[in-house]
Design a protein around this nucleic acid. Structure first.
Lengths: 191, 191, 191, 191
DNA sequence: CATGAATGAGCTTTCATTCAT
DNA sequence: CATGAATGAAAGCTCATTCAT
């Protein structure tokens, strides 16, 4: 899975197709057309459709991990860091709109790959679980369920929210949506 | 889209395939084998793969709407009713495991159909949004964002949670997961 | 091949379809729709598409035989009777436009059936060959080739002419075309 | 409709199938087997069954045009040139037996294509009509009807004659048949 | 006796993948 | 090393024909 340099970044173009039509409805020919890389060249480098998908998803999840881990590692109390995490994640979701939508839309296919399941775990679930556990230890967070369950709920909520972001939302709007989500999860709905 | 009686309920068998392999990787021949309905008979009734999918998703969302609306209409203050909604939804998710997973896994394809988008809206988002709005009016719920945004977050959280339920979870465990989720959203993570 | 009474004459409606689209492009369902006889009823009487075609072609050729033989058997010298034959044939061609066109257009399929080949032989080639032979014997016709070869040429010429007749040609125009053809074959092109 | 070189001439093999079974009863798989070109390769070059048929018919009619026009343009009086045309046409008919039979047998399908109708017009009807008109002008031919009607009758007669030629006829026999036909049309049947 | 419903067989077409240069 | 050309495998779909009432 070592893509030739110069080929990798062209593959993001395929994410638009995957998001718009679904991965299975996207032919290798379309990928070739969108990326400008001839079909046979893709195969010459063993870049099958599955590989393109995996690359996009793993690259995306890698970026998610980067920003999430960085936000989670910032200074301050856990609630603030959680808020930072949601902001960072949602911002990336918006920046990588097509790829993120593609991941959501073909969750089944993605989930069937252990590598991608691992990447998803490492990118959000694990760091956020740990963040919540820390919050509980330091007394700034309280919850009855396992931290991992909370992290999963958060992930679902962030993704649903991200999908629904207007295509042309400003970064300010995106940050506001993240803050609202943070408020919801931190303060709860009860008065 | 009026399926012959006796054919409809056989179609649930296809949900297993969709959940296990994804809709696109499931051939009509496989659906025929799984349901026991010959391929040509399916086509005779204009039941294409797309139709099977749409039927399953709409049927599922119809059932979701039924239990969600009923739970939302129960007596008592909004927080209790919200808890009831989550319990009902998660219970149904578990009962219709394959179909629910298929819907999550092929969200993209589903979201491309306006009818299914409408059904999704009507089954959960609208009733829960209204429930939250009522809670705000009666003072039992508080939130800074629009009720619909909260409903979306809830939906994402429920689905992620539902997908992760152990296949052989007892109904007691499912109810506990729903309660945890309700606690999370009602009380929040802050002490 | 004994069709139920009342079914036979409905089958002519199928000739329009055969002429317009070709026999193979015409489905049994279309025949059923055009004739008003349900598909299953056709099959109940063993009336397959092939049977419908054969019936139409044989019925048509039977009618051709009738008028051709009658015209050939009229009083007078052979040239006059030949002229009468061409008039009668072309008139029938025009009256049974669709069926005649269908026969021309699916000559290959028709020619593959021995029964239809026989019917074609009996309807035109044989009586006209005999007529020409008689003419030669009585000295009113002269030709270097076998009478059958002349009859074949005549048949080809009549059919090509018939196909090209305007759909709304009057019977007078049809008769004129037949006379022209008779003149051509009797007098020849040389001065 | 630009066929890859090397593929074109293989397509003549399909003419045998078309002549033997009719175009509609010939599957693409059979064409693939007969030509040695894999099904998928045919489709890769957009060579559908319809295209194969059209190619064969147009190629055939092109060859007809070539020999007919050449014969019609020869020196000498119109009757001699007409005779030359019939010889040339019948010889080609015999040389391209399968394709010519296929064209006759699927006349309906062929006639539905404007391109093929045009090609048929240009290959025989037009040049022969002009030849006859010239003959009339120079006083070597006489006829009461329009030259085009004569040309049509000739075409029909030639084709019927061609179809009936014995499969193993010698070129001498073919020429004799053409001469007989020429005699018939030039001298007529009357003494 | 007639027919709506059902289906087996087979066709066209697509597409991921390999070949040949 | 890269790529236009080629193809095996399989999918969706149609339709003549049979079944069940």
């Amino acid at each position: 899975m070592v893509l030739p340099p110069g080929m990798a970044n062209k593959l993001w173009a395929a994410a638009d197709l995957f998001a718009a039509q679904g991965a299975d409805r996207t032919s290798v020919a379309e990928i070739a057309a969108a990326t400008g890389i001839p079909k046979a060249t893709l195969y010459y480098h063993s870049v099958t459709k599955e590989v393109v998908l995996a690359w996009i998803f793993r690259e995306l999840l890698g970026e998610v991990e980067e920003v999430v881990v960085e936000a989670a590692a910032s200074d301050g109390p856990a609630p603030d860091r959680l808020r930072a995490v949601l902001r960072a994640h949602l911002a990336l979701f918006h920046r990588r709109r097509a790829a993120s939508a593609a991941l959501q839309f073909d969750l089944g296919r993605a989930a069937r790959s252990p590598q991608i399941r691992d990447a998803a775990e490492a990118s959000f679930i694990r760091p956020v679980s740990e963040l919540i556990a820390e919050g509980i230890r330091e007394g700034t967070l309280v919850c009855s369920q396992a931290p991992r369950a909370v992290a999963l709920a958060l992930l679902g909520a962030v993704n649903t929210t991200g999908i629904q972001l207007p295509r042309r939302a400003t970064s300010r709007q995106v940050a506001a949506a993240a803050d609202d989500l943070a408020d919801l999860f931190l303060k709860g709905l009860s008065p």
